[in-house]
Amino acid sequence: MSAVAVLGAGSWGTALAIQLARRGHQVRLWGHNQNHIDALGRDRKNTRYLPDCPFPENIRLSADLSASLTGVEMVLAVVPSHAFASLLQQIKPYIGKTPFMWAIKGFEHGTGRLLSEVFFDVIGSHHAYAMLAGPSFAKEVAANKPTAVTIAASNTALAQSFGQYFHGSAFLCYTSDDLIGVQIGGAVKNVVAIATGIADGLACGANTRAALITRGLREITRLAVALGAQQETLNGLAGLGDLVLTATDDQSRNRRFGLLLGRGENPEIAKQQIGQVVEGEGATFDTWTLAQRLGVRMPITEHLYQILSGQRTLKEAFESLLNRHIKEEQN
């Protein structure tokens, strides 16, 4: 089988490394923190996030980036979205023509650019690339629980070739050539998940949760289509599937962040309690900026932006949403 580099040794990077190793690949799992890598190597598992999932023998750990990339047939990046551009700059001298993939959901923070645009800027649009997205919690993937994801690339044949690395052992890959739709679905569902968490933290009830998920999907679809995505993509795994997962299950750090806010917790304290990057917080600002630029109506996103930026209280935001005028549902 192939030698594969996984760049990023957090919970999600570790889980995907385990899946790749399960498929028989020789996996090089890289992390930037030598102490963290040493701990993973000593324990042969990610004790903090995935304590019940020991590493297969064919996972090798390293904090040496150039060594991790030497001689591999595919590179998978699994770092926070704000670190993506920096990672690309670091690997540029070593990657050559090696196919590159990322399993990251979010925008380039501060610019609102899609991660594909960042990739084209740094590495180039002619390089073989793909993205993995869809409803997939790290703990369940690592535990080999049945999971279905979307692999998106510039064409379905290329997506198929990337999917072959992962497909099997209860991990099902579906392909798409709608990279924009898959990226928007993956990034903006985190925004809706925070809003849904807030509503549940306020004990608004199941009706509210269902309404936020449904209308949130409508907002995600409007934004994606405005950027050139295919509407049906948002009805699939990378849209509806990922949104339902993230907005309803407490394994989601974005939902948990919203729950804590809804219960009156300070945002900074809430993030400390979660102990992992809450991608949806930055994505809220980036999504709202992008929506304004494109003239796309996104009231849930707008109100969450106002909450996180201190312009409205939770009570004021929900009262405003509940006082909206009657509209046609498909608008």
Rank of each mutant, 00 (worst) to 15 (best):
T289V: 08
A152P: 03
D52V: 02
Q273C: 03
I274D: 10
F84Q: 12
F107N: 08
A128N: 07
Q311V: 11
Q292E: 14
L212C: 09
K45H: 08
M1D: 10
A77I: 15
S62V: 14
T111E: 07
V4S: 07
A210L: 05
F171A: 12
M298R: 04
G168Y: 01
V244M: 05
G8W: 03
Q164S: 13
I274R: 04
L158S: 13
E57C: 02
V78A: 10
V149G: 04
T14P: 01
L294W: 00
W12R: 04
G282C: 02
L50C: 05
Q292R: 15
T284K: 03
Q251P: 01
A270D: 09
L76W: 02
F120P: 00
V122N: 02
Q306D: 15
M1I: 07
P54L: 10
L29V: 09
G41P: 04
G295Q: 09
V27P: 02
I184W: 02
E328H: 03
L114C: 06
Y49H: 14
F84H: 15
Q164H: 07
G216K: 08
E319Y: 00
Q183S: 14
A103I: 10
V296D: 04
D178I: 11
I18R: 03
L259H: 02
V79P: 03
I123T: 13
A77C: 15
A67R: 09
L114N: 10
I151D: 06
L243Y: 02
S161G: 01
P135T: 13
R324N: 07
